[in-house]
């Protein structure tokens, strides 16, 4: 790891914040997709593969 100088805390918090945000965004997108797919299956969709 390189020396980040006197402003290391700002740099580290910027990356921690962005990657926490990205993780939340990806998790929310995947959870929403899974929840919707389960609901579709529970309703017994005859066209499960999106062939609407």
């Amino acid at each position: 790891m390189i020396e980040l100088g006197q402003h290391a805390q700002f740099i580290i918090w910027a990356y921690v914040g962005v990657f926490a945000g990205l993780l939340a965004l990806v998790s929310w997108t995947l959870l929403d997709a899974r929840r919707t797919q389960r609901r579709l299956e529970a309703l017994g969709d005859p066209r499960r593969d999106g062939k609407s």
């Binding site: 929403d32 997709a33 919707t36 066209r47």
Partner: peptide, 27 residues
């Protein structure tokens, strides 16, 4: 590219969500 990936995934989910709404109304 991350935006493109998430956008496609979210669009697929929205298509399925509308199908769910159609099926629920039909039921």
């Amino acid at each position: 590219f991350l935006f493109a990936t998430l956008q496609l995934l979210a669009m697929h989910t929205e298509v399925k969500r509308r199908r769910v709404m159609t099926l629920e109304r039909r039921a």
